[in-house]
Each structure stands twice: as C-alpha cells, then as structure tokens.
Design a protein around this nucleic acid. Structure first.
Length: 708
DNA sequence: ATCCTCCCCTAC
DNA sequence: TAAGGTAGGGGAGGAT
C-alpha cells in the first residue's frame, strides 16, 4: 500500500481549494522562475513541475503562485508518518509524502478499511488529501496508486491483477518510469507487458543488464519479490550545488569548498555518521555551451567525479576540506568554467562508541545502569568478544561490535565448528541469559542462528511450560517477506496471462476497473478473441491466483521479551515488580500485560490498552517518585535495547504512546522528559532521511560564494 | 572471480 | 533576477 499527500502548501487556505495553484520561489512579472510543483486543478491546465512561470501562466492565466513553506512540509510529514505508524508497524518511507505499508499483520481488517481510515485521518489532521493503492506486492500497490490518484483508493485484487498487468501504462509509468529505459523499450517497439513478455529473460539481461533485465522480466509478469523494509540505513550523505556557481579565482573555489565541507560535516553529525569514501562531483560548462537561459543556472555541462577512500572514517570538517581540495585540484580545471560542485560521503559507519560526550540513544542505552546487572553483562560481553577470531576490536573499549566482525568474516557466522568460539554445548545457560540482548542476538548469528533454539530447549527442560507457544527469544523474528510468494503463478504460461476470450471474463471485475484501465484492457485483447468463446484454462488459473500474502501463524509472529532479567521469564520479571510497586499506574500496566490475550505482547500493545482504558492516573504524590521514575526508565531502556536492532518501529510506537501517557500521569510525564530527547534524536535522524528532498540549505554556500 | 571507481539513471 | 537537491542502485570496465 502506498499513500501520498498533496497540497501541503495550500492546506488551511480555504480560498485556494479547487483553484489552480503552483509552488514557486518567485512570482516576478518576468515569469522566469521555475514551477516546483502544481496541484491537480493546475495540472488539468497542463501546468507541470519544471516549467517556467511565464509558460504556466500562458496555459492557465488564473494560476496562483505560492512560495515554498518548508515548515508546513515538515509538519505534515510528521503528522503523516505519525498516522501511518499508528496503524501499521511496517512502514517504508519513500519520501516525505509517500510510504509503503505492509498491512499483512492486520489480518482481521480489510485493507480497504485500513486505507480509508488512514486517508480520513490524514485529511482531518493535515488538511491534505491522500491516495492509497492496495495490492499483493509493492509493484501492484504502486500501480494501484496510479489509478487511485487523486484523493482516492484502489485495490488490485487477485482477480483484477491480470488485467492491470495488461494495462499499457503499467510499463510506461509503473514498471520503470525513467525516460531512457522507456525510450530504449519503445525503440524495440515494446509498449506493453504483453510485448515485453515475448522476450526471454536472457535477451533482456543482455540488452539492459542483469538486474534491470531480471526486473523487466518479472514486473511484466506482475512478479515482485521485494518486501516492505521498515528500517533503512543511509548509505551516503552529501550536498551539491549546481546553481549560482561562478568562480572568479582559486580563492572563490577554496571558500566554496570550505562552506560545502562544513555543510556535509554537519549533515554527517546530524545523522551521527562518519564515512570513509569521499566523492567530489564537478559540473563544467560544455565547450561551446551558451550562457544558460536560466539566470545563474548551470546550463549544458560535462560531469566529472573522483573519489578517495581513506582508512579511518571521519566527519571532521578539516579532513573533508583537505580531501575535497585535493580532489578538486586533481581535475585541473579552469575554475571559471565550473558550474556545479558536490561532495558525497559513503562507506558510512556509526559513530565512535567511545564518544560518550554526545547524547545519543546509544550512549544513553550504554550509560550507567540503575541495576548492577549491566556491569555484569558488559563483562561477559567483553569476554565473549575476545573469543572471536580475527575480530579487529576498536581500541576504544566499551561496546565494540560483533557485527563488524561478522560482516568482515562471514564464515564465522554460519559454522560453529569453524571458529574458536566454545562449542554450543559448553555454553553456560546462566551466562547466556544474562547477556545483553543485542549481544545475544549477534552471538546467535555467530552460531548460525541456533543459539535461540538451544536456549529455548534448555529453558523448556528446566521450566515445564508446555502450553506456551514457540517463542523466539527476542527479536529478530524476521517474518518471511509477506508479498514474496505467489504460489499459484508458477504453473501458468506467463506469456499469456489474459483470458482467452472476453466471454470468460467476469464482467463485474471489468466494470470495477477505472475507465482508462478498462479501455486499455479491452484494447489488449486480440481482435479474434474479443468474441471468441471457448472453455478456458488460462483464465481460471489467473483467477485462482492468490496475491494475498502467506500469513504467518500467530504463535510464530509473537516476539518474546527476554534477556536481561527485567524482560526475562514469562511473565517477565518487571510484571511482578510493577504489581507490588504500590503505584497505581505501574500496577495497571502490569495488570493489563497479563490480561492481553497474546502470551508475550509487545509493549506498545500494552500501552495502547492502558491509554484506552484509563483516563488519568493520580500518581503525583507517590512516596519515592524519583526512584520510581528511574526504575521505569531502566525498564524502558532494557526494552529499547532489545528492540533497537531489529524493531525500531516498535520503539517509535512506544515513544508516541508514552507521550500520550505523559499527559495523564505525573510519573510518565517525568519519564517522558528523560527518555524523549534520546528517542527524538533517533527519530530525527530517520526524518532527516525522509525529508532529504526538501533540505536545500547547501544553497547558502552558493549564495555566499556569489556574494549574496 | 570479485571488488572498486566512475558514471549514469531513477525516484521523490 | 532564482533557488538545476539528494540518495540509491546498476552497469561498464579496470584493478586486484
């Protein structure tokens, strides 16, 4: 499912509803500014992004120009994602106004219902309309969204799928919208999936490359194995300026590079990342290129890029400056011809873990514990790290990363006989159970995923608890990709997904398709098949296709709390602690935890119920509020530790629920005050990625250079 | 055979 | 005056 918000800029401006509006920096009488985006009424006149205002006003004289409103974008994006996360745990951000949601967990709820609820909430909260496309795969969802726009929703059900694949715009828009590929396909006279399917995978891969060929082959058959990725880590961070760049001399260049490096360094710090590879991109005016029509634009340019990889990752502005200066010099350019400069940092790593000074979620999680437990954990941790061969520990002490070793030395991961780790049978259960969860998780990887099984087995022997369902210790519960399988499609001759004749088509399905699509589908029938009637096999096969995700059964889907004593056991230790705390809020949480039907519910599930069942708590006057606050923080810290690697969404969800709880409980108000800066930090890093298309402050560097 | 660099394409 | 930014991913071809 994919959602898109529009009309951000004109929200709260009723007088502009239904009027053609375009966003643009300037509405000067010359009309030489470029349109950034246009609402649907404006698009109806042919107004498009990238157009000069003058041209747009020729098409639509009453066009209203409004300036950018970055604050509004940020606000709406925030609300947008807030709503999505409230309804769905697996949200993959595409941009500030688009996301994929995997709703296969909400199996009791019709996706249409979820979509319309979300859309209603979006318009009520943000004043922007939203569209939703629903389908069994991300490809189908995207295609459905095309149909759903503007401000609607559309479900490509299993029955409709074969028809939608035939739609002409499936290739043109949804499969791969890029102009280059489209042109290449059209040169081969390919406009539809039907035509595309006539070409073998080999031939496609030869023509378009291995991956692209494979993609074309699968998408034209409606196959898409991607799954919604809720956690995305950034792979590069950078900034470039291709407008307003006019250097007079070397000094201008140095000043510009200084500004650019400062900006990039700040962005790295903002994301708490350091990087090893630095790429400088240069645009140089083409030999005979005229001064561009656009004022201070870059015009027709040749592009160059050159990179350097250094041994130690950094975000240090001076290092960046030295490197970019060196790279720039290596191009041997006439600086007067330069029209654009960009610096990109890749091979990113997390920040130095010894950097305790910076207040990050990680440093908070690793900060002095309220209990003695953590110290013990850390010792065990360090000892285990030393057992790993070939592990280049950072000399910073503290929490080094086994993951690092794993990725550098994959063989260690899969085969427990292959390393100097103690054999699994020698592992001490007590030690294991007291390991910090993230280490346990990594160790599990090192033992080829068998560790949890072992613990579960040993624990099962020790504690007779036969009726408890299978519980994975903590996380990773990596559900198999919900959209990954389309079991019935294997046997179908994919070169002909369509029914043999129209008479075999359930007319109601055709009628449900939007007109544009229906016309396309009808057009896709070879003439002789439009009347022909015969018994069908392909159609039946198509109709039986099940594009619903394969559901994971309940027991497997549950994520057990575990490790670090607070979250250990069933019910976990904290439940008993809370029960006897003498604090009404905590008692309620503990009570609800036990009442929730699932045997090991998520904390978010519990908090949600607490909020819906209890109006407010009168806990301001409890005896030792400070101590209780500490305890609750520790309780949360432990939970975050468990979830931080594999389930950031759960943390974000809990965070939002905590916020609501804070309004009703003095205790949680204080807890929230302590916890929120750390979570917010993490949240912001994610949002920075989401908003990447909007942050344009690198321009300041350009403006500084051009003397504005 | 595999990795890396440069460059291009794509998406928003 | 205008505000052509940012990031991911893939392919070609060379380096190892």
């Amino acid at each position: 499912m994919k959602l898109a918000t529009k009309e951000m800029v004109i929200r709260n401006r009723l007088e502009l509803q239904d009027k053609p509006v375009a966003v643009c920096h300037s509405d000067n009488p010359k009309g030489t500014a470029e349109i950034s985006s246009a609402n649907y009424p404006a698009r109806a006149y042919g107004v498009k992004a990238g157009m000069f205002v003058r041209h747009a006003k020729d098409l639509c004289p009453q066009l209203v120009i409004v300036p950018y409103n970055f604050q509004a974008y940020e606000e709406v994006a925030d609300q947008f994602y807030d709503i999505l996360h409230r309804h769905c745990r697996k949200v993959q951000a595409v941009s500030c106004d688009e996301a994929f949601l995997d709703v296969s967990d909400l199996r009791d709820v019709e996706p249409e219902y979820t979509a319309s609820t979300i859309r209603r909430e979006i318009i009520e909260t943000t004043g922007c309309s939203a569209s939703a496309g629903i389908g069994g795969t991300m490809l189908m969802a995207r295609l459905a969204t095309r149909v759903a726009k503007p401000a609607g929703q559309f479900h490509i059900s299993a029955e409709k799928k074969p028809f939608c694949i035939e739609a002409r715009f499936m290739i043109v828009c949804a499969v791969f919208a890029g102009s280059v590929l489209k042109e290449k396909l059209e040169k081969q006279n390919i406009q539809t999936c039907r035509q595309l399917r006539l070409i073998s995978k080999d031939a496609l891969q030869k023509d378009f490359g291995v991956k692209t060929g494979e993609m074309l082959w699968s998408y034209s058959r409606g196959l898409d194995l991607r799954s919604v990725r809720a956690v995305q880590e950034s792979k590069s961070i950078g900034a470039e300026v291709n407008w307003g760049v006019r250097f007079r001399d070397q000094q201008d260049v140095q000043h510009f590079l200084q500004c650019l490096c400062k900006e990039v360094s700040l962005r790295l710090q903002g994301c708490e990342m350091i990087g090893r590879t630095f790429t400088l991109k240069i645009k140089r005016r083409k030999k005979d290129a005229e001064e561009p029509a656009k004022y201070m634009g870059c015009g027709d340019c040749d592009n160059f890029s050159r990179s350097i990889t250094v041994p130690a990752a950094t975000d240090d502005v001076e290092v960046l400056q030295r490197i970019s200066k060196k790279l720039f010099g290596s191009f041997c350019l006439d600086v007067k011809e330069v029209r654009g400069v960009g610096l990109q940092v890749s091979k990113l790593e997390g920040p130095d873990p010894s950097n305790k000074g910076s207040k990050t979620l990680t440093s908070w999680l690793n900060s002095a514990p309220a209990s003695v437990q953590t110290e013990k954990d850390d010792n065990v941790f360090a000892a285990e790290v030393r057992e790993i061969p070939d592990c280049k520990r950072r000399d910073t002490g503290g929490v080094s990363s086994l993951r690092e070793c794993n990725s550098a030395e994959p063989s260690v991961q899969s085969d427990d006989t292959n390393s100097s780790l103690p054999p699994m049978c020698h592992l001490d259960m007590e030690v294991l159970e007291n390991l910090p969860p993230e280490l346990l998780s990594e160790l599990d990887g090192t033992y080829g995923g068998k560790l949890y099984e072992l613990i579960e087995k040993k624990r099962g022997k020790r504690k007779i608890n036969s009726d408890s369902p299978h519980v994975s210790l903590d996380e990773p519960h990596v559900p198999h990709p919900p959209f990954a399988r389309e079991p019935n499609e294997r046997g179908i001759e994919m070169n002909d997904l369509m029914p043999l004749s129209l008479s075999q088509v359930d007319v109601s399905i055709l009628q449900e398709l939007p007109e544009e699509l229906r016309a396309d589908v009808l057009g896709a029938f070879p003439a002789h098949r439009r009347q022909q009637s015969s018994s069908d096999t392909a159609m039946e096969a198509c109709m039986k296709q099940d594009d619903e995700p394969t559901y994971i059964n309940d027991a497997e889907n549950e994520i057990g709390f575990s490790s670090s004593s607070l979250w250990f056991g069933n019910p976990p230790l904290w439940v008993e602690n809370f029960k006897v705390s003498g604090n009404c809020t905590l008692e309620k949480i503990s009570e609800i935890y036990c009442k929730v039907a699932q045997s090991r519910p998520m904390l978010s599930t519990v908090l949600q119920r607490v909020i819906s069942e209890v109006g407010s708590f009168h806990d301001a006057s409890i005896n030792d509020l400070e101590k209780t606050v500490d305890d609750v923080c520790e309780f949360l810290k432990r939970y975050i530790k468990i979830k931080v690697e594999g389930d950031i969404e759960e943390i974000c969800l809990c965070f939002r629920l905590l916020n609501r709880l804070a309004a009703r409980s003095q205790l949680f108000h204080q807890v929230y005050e302590i916890v929120s800066p750390f979570i917010q930090n993490m949240h912001t890093c994610r949002r920075m990625w989401i908003l990447k298309g909007i942050v344009v402050n690198a321009h300041e560097a350009a403006l500084a250079v051009v003397g504005k």
